[in-house]
Amino acid sequence: MKLRRDIGFHAVAGTLSILWLLPIALVLLTAIRTFDDIASNGLGAMPSSFSLDSFGAAWHAGGQSRAMVNSLLVTVPTVVLSLALAAAAAFALSRYDIPFRRAIILLMLAGNLLPPQILLVPVSKLSELLGIYDTLPALIAVQVGFGLGFYTFVLQGFMWAIPDEIQQAATIDGAGVVTIFWRIILPMTRPALAALSALAFTWIFNDLLWAITVLRTGTVMPVTPALLGLQGQYVSNWNVIAAGSVIAAIPTVAVFLRFQKHFISGLAVGAVK
């Protein structure tokens, strides 16, 4: 019976893995084929040519180089600022008896349950009133605001599980609030911070909705909206479009592989505790 279960599990898991990897393999194969090969044999045919020219076309002529810089200029500051604010808020909510603490946590979490589509027009109008519309700081502010609640919720659950005796011992030794936060609580929260960093980087880097809501000029567009422009520029050049998609996926894949061991364990422990 156990052998049958194992065989069945591996058969189902293997099938799902193949179905999951097939589109990725198709994109990679398309990216390394020439336009003439695709036009003659079709997208589904095995490649009869090999060329990396499509990557150069997507990177330079397609504007992926500029879009990649824009994405990093938005993603890196947003991740750092969001986690810094979330860590400070989570420290206060988890380690001190703040009035209406539970209500504050639920309110911050409830903000993430709102469908973003109903907020597109208000966010766009607000950025115009503030004079930051069509700028990267506007996108950073939006990403920080809409991610802060979830990050705080996860981190406060992780910090709440840290024994009170550790903080009490530090207080007896004369450590202040800032010292306790920076040198004791924050290092102990490193697994959750690593997991959230990978998750936040992926979310923000791949975002399309908020980027096209507060940005309009092509020169400030991040990489994901820039892929739409790439499709319009190279309508039938599927190899260039596929190459642009591969380029856009490289940073998030690299970050996920770097923090892979922290990703699931950190989020699971923080959410449960």
Rank of each mutant, 00 (worst) to 15 (best):
P99I: 04
P122A: 01
F150P: 01
L83Y: 00
S82R: 05
W238T: 04
L19D: 11
Q167F: 11
G62P: 05
L130G: 07
R216L: 05
R95C: 03
S71H: 11
G174R: 15
K2V: 15
M188H: 07
D207V: 00
R4V: 15
F50H: 12
T30L: 05
V178E: 09
R95W: 09
G14K: 05
I172H: 09
V69G: 05
V123E: 04
L267S: 00
L130P: 07
A249I: 07
V121Q: 02
S197T: 12
T189W: 09
P115T: 00
M159S: 06
A169V: 04
A161C: 03
G176M: 10
W203K: 07
I105S: 15
L126G: 07
I185T: 01
A88Y: 11
A89T: 13
A86F: 10
P47R: 00
T189E: 03
I241R: 02
A25Y: 13
L19I: 03
L85C: 12
T213V: 01
P115F: 08
K261H: 10
Y96W: 13
L106D: 15
S49I: 02
S197V: 07
S197Q: 06
A67V: 11
A254D: 12
T217E: 13
W210P: 01
V144Y: 02
G270D: 06
Q143K: 02
A175F: 14
H10I: 12
L21N: 07
A211K: 05
I104Q: 14
L93F: 12
R4G: 15
I32P: 10
W59D: 08
V220P: 09
S48D: 12
L155F: 11
V240M: 02
L257E: 03
M221Y: 11
G8P: 09
I184K: 01
I250W: 10
S65W: 12
W238V: 07
K125I: 13
E165L: 13
I7C: 15
V123I: 03
G157I: 07
A268H: 04
N70W: 09
P163V: 08
L120C: 02
V235N: 14
F205M: 03
M68E: 13
T224F: 08
G14E: 07
L106V: 15
F205S: 05
H10E: 14
V269Y: 12
L28N: 08
G62L: 04
R102D: 15
A84S: 13
L107H: 10
W182R: 06
G266F: 03
G14Y: 03
T152V: 08
T152Q: 10
F153H: 01
I264H: 01
L228D: 13
Y96K: 01
P251V: 04
G44S: 09
L230T: 04
G42W: 01
A242R: 06
L257R: 09
F158Y: 14
I140K: 05
L81V: 14
M1D: 15
F263Y: 00
N70E: 11
P23G: 11
G111L: 08
R258P: 12
W160V: 14
A86T: 09
G62C: 06
F205L: 02
P116M: 05
V69S: 09
I132P: 04
P225V: 09
V269A: 14
Y96P: 13
E165D: 14
S40Y: 03
F100P: 11
G174D: 01
R4A: 15
A226M: 14
V269E: 08
M46S: 11
S40Q: 11
F205T: 09
D53N: 11
L52I: 10
